[in-house]
Amino acid sequence: MSLRSQIHSAFDEVAPSTFGLPERVVQTAVTEIQGHRRRERLMLRLRVPLSLVAAFVLIALVVGVLIGGKLLHDWNLFRSSAPAGGGDQSVLAQLEARPLNFPTPATHGDCMPGPYNSAGSFGKGPLYADGGSTSSTSWGLYYHNLAYAETHISGPVLIRAMDLFTRERVVFVGRYAAGPVVGQDTVDGVAVEQRTELVFDTSQASNDSYLSQYKFAWPFTAGVPKSWSGSTAWQIDGVGFSEVFVGC
């Protein structure tokens, strides 16, 4: 008996009858296939609405990202362009870089006050200043002045002042004082820091009602030591202008 016959015999004797098996298996497979095709057709019908939903979601995401990005960009632009400490720092730095052009009178007799405008205020414009009341301290004397402009100006305005004979810088205290701190004092019961610059922000000028007659108005306080000479020079630098006036 060959190996082939032995194997045939060995497996045939345990093999059950296959009567009806092909039909049963094929029928089950066809039923599964029909169910599968029904599910496929259902998915096909859902594909279009699902695709539309997916497209809408995608568009919404893209639009959201674009709008969010624009808002973020605008916010960053707004933050970077907002005034920090009363003026555009880069413009202020350019103004501070300008040299002081004060006169150097040899004697008090050589000191020429002015210029004045028609109202008698110091300055040739666009910024003018009027002297006001004073406050005394053990250190010196403080003048409560008013600077104003009658025409529109933009950007920061820098004011620096100096004693014409002692060559000491006039100090500033209060709201618009800027620059390095050079001393401390108490004025009218209020502790203040003395600084060497005054910076006006044209976007945040005073809106006090009694000052409404001016386009811009900035009340400020300037201090001089007891040893001052009585003669001072003031330099006002702004975007597109620079002026100097002298008080003797």
């Binding site: 296959t18 098996l21 092909p22 039909e23 298996v25 094929v26 029928q27 497979a29």
Partner: peptide, 14 residues
């Protein structure tokens, strides 16, 4: 598919 598959079931089962 059923026509193709039916004659293959018996040898497949064996």
């Amino acid at each position: 598919f059923a026509d193709l598959l039916t004659p293959l079931i018996e040898p497949g089962f064996r």
